[in-house]
Nucleic acid binder design. Structure first.
Lengths: 194, 194
DNA sequence: CGTCACATTGATGCCTCTCAAAGCTTGTGG
DNA sequence: CCACAAGCTTTGAGAGGCATCAATGTGACG
């Protein structure tokens, strides 16, 4: 949220450095508080017993995360660093204090929650699309600007995982919708047509 | 949220009655505000051009909904009444006013957003399970109490839709996991075993 | 007792996952 | 500057599972 600096200065309690792959917390751990990512990248995921793994959120520098844990005794996700990262720690009690006393902060907090909820629902909707072609097209639409230029956040392989397809199925879908004339690829650029 | 009575009295601006199947708002409509369901049942859904339909949230009496629309110029879902329903209307500006001035209310609001976010993520995780058997089992686990008794919210068919399976696939999965001895069915009761 | 919706089972086909292999790109070290 | 390694990209073949279409059983309610 925009108040991240403000929040950090008032509620921050030091930073923590994470090595690539290191876990900040795991599902079931007593919740210590929320965090702001200073540098690097972290991922919130849930794992099934069978080894399956679903990414709930990928956090970019400047963003806060694990807000729901403020209201919960334990974490509900694992948090692992995708690469070396630095996070600011915001202990639960302090943030909850601000939330109960500073209505401007509370409103900003609610706004961020609402945005994340919409984002989660959009991802949910996208995953509900059965056809690989339509799902890929939907994902590209979400990533595109008004001119139809798609801004890829990472590799295509990453995008495949993000939208819940194997990379093979994803590449095949991409090839099909290009042959169908619905996108044009130029190197690593993708443009939506019509 | 618990403050629903409080909120209604202060921010409520009349009620609206919906016939079964009637839409309260549609995606893209200018957002008027949020709502509290007084009676009946409503469903928030997103539809694809191809006729596909994903339910984002099912609202029970006493619950508020469409909170994210406070921060958005338009609605991002359709809202339709599952059966005849009554809602209290909470205009945007009024609620935003409270949010900016009353920190206790803002904190409660943030809490509800956080809960909904966790709920959305749990549903997302469930849908990520490929195997119909495991997905059904996961859903039953979420619906069960500590004794393993499953509280069905509606019909089995509804549950099938909720977890993203056709009713046929769902019934077959249910039959398989019962044969495997992981659940026991007695009439319309389901109990998880071990 | 008839209707309607839920519940259940069967047969078939398509689509995605999986395993496999080969090109391609990027970066690193000699 | 080249050679090699590692990871991304791409295509192939096969199998399994869920959707789909179809039909019947079952229960609630007027």
């Amino acid at each position: 949220m925009q108040d991240s600096r403000w929040l950090k200065e008032r509620a921050g309690k030091g930073t923590r450095r994470l090595a690539s792959g290191e876990a900040l917390f795991c599902r079931g751990d007593a919740s210590f508080g929320m965090f702001i990512l200073e540098a690097g990248r972290v991922r919130l995921r849930r794992c099934g017993r069978d080894g399956s793994e679903v990414t709930m959120q990928t956090v970019a520098p400047g963003e806060s995360f694990a807000e729901p844990s403020l209201f919960s005794p334990v974490y509900h996700c694992d948090c692992v660093a995708v690469r070396e990262s630095v996070v600011t720690v915001l202990p639960k009690t302090r943030v909850l204090g601000f939330l109960g006393n500073d209505s401007a902060f509370a409103a900003a907090f609610a706004l961020r929650m609402a945005r994340q909820l919409q984002h989660a629902r959009t991802r949910f909707e996208l995953r509900g699309i059965r056809s690989a072609d339509e799902r890929v097209l939907g994902a590209l639409l979400l990533l595109s600007d008004e001119r139809g230029e798609v801004a890829l956040p990472g590799t295509l392989k990453d995008l495949a995982v993000e939208i819940g397809l194997t990379h093979e199925a994803f590449y095949r879908a991409l090839a099909r919708i290009e042959r169908a004339g619905r996108i044009r690829r130029t190197g690593r650029r993708i443009a939506l047509l019509a």
